[in-house]
Design a protein around this nucleic acid. Sequence first.
DNA 1: CTGTTAGCGCATTCAC
DNA 2: GTGAATGCGCTAACAG
Lengths: 335, 335
Amino acid sequence: MAHHAPTLDEVAREAGVSRSTASRAINGGNRVSPAAQAAVDAAIAHLGFVPNRAARALATSQTGSIALVIPEPDDKFLSDPFLLGVLRGVSGALSGTETQLVLLINHANQPEGQMSRYLRAGHVDGAIITSPHAGDHLEDDLRGMRNVVFIGRPFRSEGIAYVDVDNVEGGRLATRTLLDAGRTRIGTISGPTDMTAGLDRLQGFTDALGAVDLPTDAVESGDFTAAGAEAATHRLLDRRPDLDALFVASDSMAVGVRIALADRGLRVPEDVALVGFDNLGAATAMTPRLTTVDNPLVEMVDAATRRLLARLGSGEDVGENLVLPPTLVPGSSDR
Amino acid sequence: MAHHAPTLDEVAREAGVSRSTASRAINGGNRVSPAAQAAVDAAIAHLGFVPNRAARALATSQTGSIALVIPEPDDKFLSDPFLLGVLRGVSGALSGTETQLVLLINHANQPEGQMSRYLRAGHVDGAIITSPHAGDHLEDDLRGMRNVVFIGRPFRSEGIAYVDVDNVEGGRLATRTLLDAGRTRIGTISGPTDMTAGLDRLQGFTDALGAVDLPTDAVESGDFTAAGAEAATHRLLDRRPDLDALFVASDSMAVGVRIALADRGLRVPEDVALVGFDNLGAATAMTPRLTTVDNPLVEMVDAATRRLLARLGSGEDVGENLVLPPTLVPGSSDR
DNA sequence: CTGTTAGCGCATTCAC
DNA sequence: GTGAATGCGCTAACAG
């Protein structure tokens, strides 16, 4: 245990300069002579100096950390690939940065406005908010705050910066793939209706079928879990046993759909063709390999983080919200 | 945005007391009169005062935050239920606490000793370290530091505080379940050999079979992923097509095992009985539902976090390392 | 380009 | 039980 963490004072003394010069040398080296810079660098290396974050934060009133707000862990939490992708994206964008990542679990029953108070209290410089649900206080509490970026489009997006994948286009893409494979009796296991991602993907499904004058009523909504999708599939097939294809709004749900189909003795893709959505790991683990729509989640989050950092740094907005295009990932479940 | 975050000074002034009294009132209220206490409380509520973490950290040289160190995101990262369980455990232990959680991604190629330097620099008060691998610098870098707790027993545990599940006993439990079901040609898809969890579960397998004089050589090691396990299962069955039961060292791997068995036309449990390990979500999603060993991960991590907090608070060690007992979770894959 | 001078907001001696 | 004084380690004017 070091008896004493080296301080800027000691660095300055060892380098033979004043504290201010040492400080400038550390922060970008503006207006410091090469000689002084070198001396300070040497002293830092020699002493193993690491700036004290608390002191720096106090002086600059910037914490050097951002928060990642994630929804309360519930039963589906334990197998949610979404969160892992988010982590990976933030982590990538922050690597090489001095910025710290503070994790904030957004408990559902926590006092309204607590989150925005936390941000306003200045405990962190900014925040990334994941998976907004309808009725979430967060969306309204945080509207207009410029140090906040949402992952996924919120329900009312005015005054909210966000990045998202084009879920409508993704839903279209998936459904067209089924059409191109020659299927005509197409249904969907949609996502939850209290999330824009669920709604948008369903919209894409409806668009694609409507464009070719096919019925769009074979819909049952799941909850982005395998178990929920399994039940939804049974409900749907009870009603419409003639379906020859399904667009499943998430790969996790496709696992449940496969089970339901197997229970009914239906083969994939011979009897029922399948196209999923996400490509976050589950698709490649299925047999036959699931044809799916790639959700560029990691890139999305990476972009969101960089955008937040830019907003914090320059103070100026980077402009438009970012909506990334989805792409089809071929498998053997669609034809 | 508030023009000005309220400071302790203002609280003191509004309450008609000195800064020191206000400070005491806030921190436990020792040696402050009921009248003063009430006045301060009122002022705090009125002003919406929130103590500035940076200032407090600077004054106390305690940051009020702990780090959670997780391994670098690789390809299996995106579908690892382990990490989610850890998050859930830490989150639970920290809720109701003022302590912040800082996420640290431990990049494999990061300079040796960086992590321990980070801790010694005092950026956080302590750390929770997840899933130690053999050859990890971390284990040696952090040995002896009393503000660190590991999740999962490290290879050399001297000088390292950790909590773990009894993986050996878990492996025994799983294997005995298979024996009790009348199986006699039992193999295992083990975990990676560079993790104590993998090694220990295999040890339990060997113990249980050795105790009844059955051969223990039907072993192939997976990597805790479904794809890896699928390949391992084929290797094992190529060599030992007569097996009538498998202990699979993780539920994620069991998914791959099921695929491999299906490919070979083997039914579960009629032809091959299966017992997994973890019960972190995958088991209940399988059909037939996987019989598995419950890994009390969330409780483990919760305990680890509380232990860390205790160590930081009182300065005294809480004593022994904690090793939680695993329990069997019945399914219909074992008989 | 450099050093001197002030705080940032809080906890904590120490006398009273 | 209370208040005055001091310092945590750093950055940011300011005058030189």
